[in-house]
Design a protein around this nucleic acid. Structure first.
Length: 641
RNA sequence: CGGGGUGUAGCGCAGCUUGGUAGCGCGUCUCGUUCGGGACGAGAAGGUCGAAGGUUCAAAUCCUUUCACCCCGACCA
């Protein structure tokens, strides 16, 4: 799914219609430096700081200097063109969100300290918008009164505020950042474009935007998370230093966030789930102060894949769901080297609302948190046990031996080894276990087991989309995220209008975000070398940097540079003239650092034969080619194609 | 929120152990020599040492409090 989709509106990077800008280094502010601030670690942070793009004002708060602002404006321009082409309209909402807007959605509580809060002079609580679902729903509710006005897609590009617990990596995780946020409104009607149409249009627009920005990216299926809603995709810049892990199937192109990624059919054990003789007598081991897998692994010297990890959730379903199944707790059991996936636990159990059980409460119920084994569920009504396929093994097909398991001892500071599903569960797991959801008949009984997929996918797991293929992991930086929201916000804020049958219905919504400032940083992460940034042409602050060797204002080189700049500008190029009276080495180093894609050097030798030296920033090998002055524009246009 | 660390000139750092009123490199300014990959020489400007309180004749240095910032983790439309 890399760079997939249409190249939609294939705008050239260089507009020959509009004149480009010309700036002189000496007359703008580009404070480059040899050394980055000591707190800058990630490449984008270091290079943007060293290149004079950004300057830290406070934790996670940055000045955007002229170079950065030019890049951001170019990203924004592409965003606007594609958003407009996709049928949405730009507007601009306030940064300030009155506290009462959260009355219906309770997101002030959901956000908690992430929400910047302030008071006006009368003491009324206000917030700085972390995102604008409430504001726009409020706006739409007050101004959209007929289904005939739908569908409607609105967007803005604006500063967002989130008081992150830990801002990091410069622009990649900020407290104040620039975001494009879009919202769509729908009523599913015969023959009218619904949420799915808008979602698809936004998906295509995003593919176009990131493609045009010159980014190498992957679209992944994602969890919709606390913002709510049903479907969601993330747009990830492919980059090893990225914070997020994504999994891809090379055969089918399937890609997903680790939180969301499905796992293909895992071979069932030859003798069936849970079947197998004990590997030895059940033996209790004193493991003082070792509640975690790592602790036990180190203490008992066992491999994590030989451990069973049991995670207890408390069910907070609606009364109807509660009546249907009667579950109070869910015990998810996975192998020690695997992680329980809450979304998959929800899906398999059909319990929409679950939270990690409170340790104190669970202990009171007889679950020794940190030392829980599947046995803890035996004899307790209302406990659903979900066992991951890789954990429900009694006989090891690979070694031909009984499976050796270490698991909790169900009392503090104790574990057991030689756990065996059939022997130690105290009842026949085969009789109790059912595969898959929907078999709810026995739910609510004592220790009901289900086998299924309840863990995070890992590299090497079977692909869910192509038989025989294995998932591979890679890192990415999230620069875009689209959601189908459904009626979460319209319900919460009472946004309902009449449909053509005069039925009052909640308006259906979608929301679509792009981290504009993060996109700039992600691009640097993706595209740089040891000398500096290597901008893709479409979002480079300048397309061409002209470097006259002799920098005095009246030197012939500077005059020729000015002349060249005029011609390039007329052809649509943005040109930076390095007119500083600096030594050549300084200018070359700085040109590489700030990453302008095309460099034209005007030295004595080249000028003597009426030429300039042409060099691409991305081409680290060549020493540049001599191009006749009258052919320079043509040469640059060829490079821009 | 847990763990670790740092605050001294625009940037990078030393000085703190053993108190005596601040120094180095880069950058900046002036003059001269230089000029194709971060030049050289001479001179100059720039800091209430994060803040507050305390100990002391005397605090960048010791003590207390506090603030800010960074890294790892938890968390994260």
């Amino acid at each position: 799914m890399q760079n997939q989709g249409t190249q939609g509106s294939s705008q050239p990077a260089i507009s020959t219609v509009n004149r480009g800008t010309i700036q002189r280094w000496s007359r703008t502010l580009i404070p480059t430096s040899k050394e980055a601030p000591s707190d800058a670690e990630s490449p984008s942070h270091r290079l943007l700081a060293r290149g004079g793009y950004i300057r830290r004002v406070a934790a996670g708060v940055y000045d955007y200097l002229p170079l950065a602002w030019r890049v951001l404006k170019k990203v924004e321009r592409i965003v606007r063109q594609e958003m407009d082409a996709a049928g949405s309209s730009e507007l601009f909402m306030p940064v300030i969100v009155p506290h009462e807007f959260y009355a219906g959605t309770k997101r002030d509580e959901a956000y908690g300290p992430l929400l910047f809060s302030l008071q006006d002079r009368k003491g009324n609580p206000l917030h700085l918008g972390p995102t604008h679902e409430e504001t726009i729903t409020e706006l739409a509710a007050g101004s959209v009164s007929s289904y005939k006005q739908l569908p409607l897609i609105l967007y803005q590009i604006q500063t967002k505020f989130r008081d992150e617990a830990r801002p990091r990596a410069g622009l990649l995780r900020c407290r104040e950042f620039i975001m494009k946020d879009a919202y769509s409104f729908h009523m599913e009607l015969e023959g009218a474009g619904g949420l799915n149409d808008a979602y698809d249009a936004m998906y295509r627009a995003y593919v176009n935007i990131f493609t045009r920005c010159g980014l190498d990216f992957t679209v992944v299926e994602a969890e919709s998370g606390p913002i709510g809603g049903s479907a969601s995709h993330e747009f990830m810049v492919n980059c090893d230093s990225g914070e997020d892990t994504i999994l891809k199937c090379p055969a089918s192109g399937y890609a997903a966030n680790v939180e969301k990624c499905e796992i293909g059919e895992r071979a069932a054990p030859s003798r069936g789930y849970f079947v197998g003789e004990p590997s030895g007598a059940l033996e209790e081991v004193h493991t003082p102060g070792c509640p975690g897998i790592e602790d036990v692994v180190a203490f008992m010297k066992v491999k994590p894949q030989n451990m069973l990890k049991s995670v207890l959730f408390k069910v907070q379903s609606t009364p109807e769901q509660q009546a249907k199944y009667g579950d109070e707790y869910i015990l998810a059991v996975v192998r020690g080297d695997h992680d329980v996936n809450e979304g998959k636990v929800r899906a398999l159990s059909e319990c929409a609302e679950i939270v990690l059980a409170d340790p104190a409460e669970a202990n009171a119920k007889g679950f020794a948190i940190g030392f829980v084994s599947p046995r803890a569920a035996v004899g307790k009504k209302g406990v659903l046990v979900l066992v991951d396929r890789d954990a429900a093994i009694g006989f090891d097909d690979a070694t031909g031996k009984p499976r050796f398991w270490v698991t909790g001892g169900d009392r503090k500071d104790h574990h057991v080894k030689h756990f065996n599903w059939q022997r130690d569960l105290g009842k026949d797991p085969l009789a109790a276990h059912h595969q898959g959801p929907g078999s709810g008949g026995l739910r609510g009984e004592d220790c009901f087991l289900m086998v299924g997929d309840v863990r995070n996918a890992l590299a090497g797991d079977p692909s869910p989309r192509a038989a025989g293929a294995k998932l591979v992991a890679q890192r990415g930086i999230e620069v875009g995220h689209i959601f189908k929201l459904g009626t979460k916000y319209s319900d919460a804020m009472g946004f309902a209008i009449l449909d053509e049958h005069q039925q009052r219905r909640s308006v259906i919504m979608g929301c679509y975000g792009i981290g504009v400032s993060r996109t700039m940083a992600a691009c640097v992460e993706m595209s740089h070398d040891e000398n500096g940034i290597v901008w893709p042409l479409p979002i480079a602050p300048f397309h061409v940097i002209i470097v006259p060797m002799k920098g005095e204002p009246d030197s012939p080189a500077v005059r020729i540079a000015t002349d060249l700049a005029e011609k390039l500008s007329a052809a649509g190029f943005d040109v930076l003239i390095d007119d500083r009276d600096e030594r050549p080495g300084v200018k070359f180093k700085d040109a590489d650092l700030i990453g302008v894609p095309i460099r034209l050097t005007l030295g004595d030798k080249a000028l003597a034969e009426g030429s300039a030296e042409f060099k691409l920033r991305s081409d680290t090998q060549s020493k540049g080619e001599l191009v006749k002055l009258e052919s320079v524009v043509e040469r640059c246009l060829a490079a821009a194609r």
